[in-house]
Amino acid sequence: MRAILVGAVESSRIALQCLARSPAWDLGAIFTLPPELAQRHSDFVDLSADARAAGAPLITLSNINSDAAFAEIKAIDPDYIFVIGWSQICGARFMASARLGLIGFHPAPLPRLRGRAVIPWTILLDEPISASSLFLIDEGVDSGPILGQRYFHVAPDETAATLYAKHMAMLDDMLPSVLDDVAQCKARMQSQDERYATYATRRRPEDAVIDWSEPADKAGRLIRACGAPYPGAWTMLDGERIVIEEARPVCLPQYRAAMTGQIVERQTDGFLVKCGDGRGLLVTRWRRAREGPLPVHAILGLRAGAKQ
């Protein structure tokens, strides 16, 4: 089988390596973003070294639906195109350019949580179980037949980083057998049950501003959901944007006479902020949005900004 891979993130790198290792597949090319467009993905990965190791040409482009992309695809004549880690919607011409179809990866238990930003949404919704899904791409939104799916538990203290890592491990474990089945025309294609379909919408930087009037558990969940490899949850502190990278809810019985969003105490490992339910968040890792770390001695007595 001849394949093209389209992607620019860690899941793309895993797919590249799996395709390169499989004797049943010939990796005709890898399409990825040029370095100057790396900001499109907060988890962008440079695939050049892996492409060289695989002996496959690396083609950089900004628009997968462009004439230039279509010309490259036509010259390679792939059986399948793997679209794994690419944010653009596949147009009709692109979808028709592979002889047998397009294969995608989604870090959610399809048909649940189709759409965007599903790793943060999984944590924000307090989902107890997730799954990594490989599927045939059709005209819908993550709605094509399932080729492989691996379920796992989501920990109560899961972060974006730990959940991301779980999905990458599942993809690496699941993809080789799916590649074998597809190459041998033995893939088990399971239609998605539309009765259980839900959708996740795009998240923007302003959606990650911390609302200190919320309960400590909810504010802490936002911090866990928006952290690395994503830009992070943030607040304003003395006129400066501060990204909160790690925090945990704590009791604050001694600070009943304090304002919501107020930094009430400095500790050796961080500082305490009072939340709307009277509990607090112990912030143990933080940074300036643009200038790097802010020392703990610089923040005592200031007030974190509430959501506008």
Results as ranks from 00 to 15, higher is better:
A131K: 11
A131L: 09
A131Q: 08
L134M: 13
F135C: 09
L136P: 01
I137N: 13
I137S: 05
I137M: 13
E139R: 12
E139D: 15
E139M: 06
D142H: 05
D142F: 03
S143G: 14
S143R: 09
G144L: 08
P145Y: 09
P145R: 15
P145F: 05
I146Q: 09
G148Q: 11
Q149W: 00
R150E: 14
R150A: 14
R150Y: 06
Y151N: 07
V154M: 05
A155V: 00
D157A: 14
T159I: 04
A160D: 00
A160N: 06
L163T: 04
L163Q: 03
A165K: 10
K166L: 10
K166I: 00
H167S: 12
H167D: 11
H167Y: 10
H167P: 11
M168C: 14
A169F: 07
A169P: 08
A169R: 15
M170D: 15
D172H: 14
D172T: 07
D173I: 05
D173W: 13
P176G: 13
P176S: 14
S177P: 01
V178K: 05
L179H: 11
L179A: 11
D181E: 14
D181Q: 15
D181I: 01
A183I: 00
Q184E: 14
C185M: 12
A187M: 07
A187Y: 06
A187Q: 12
R188V: 14
M189E: 14
Q190N: 10
Q190F: 12
Q190W: 06
S191H: 12
Y196N: 04
A197F: 05
A197I: 05
T198C: 07
Y199Q: 09
Y199T: 11
A200N: 06
T201I: 01
R203P: 03
R204E: 13
R204V: 09
A208V: 02
I210T: 03
W212P: 07
A216H: 07
D217H: 08
D217W: 00
K218E: 12
K218G: 01
G220F: 03
G220T: 05
R221W: 00
A225Y: 04
A225F: 00
C226I: 05
C226W: 06
G227M: 02
A228K: 08
Y230V: 04
Y230G: 03
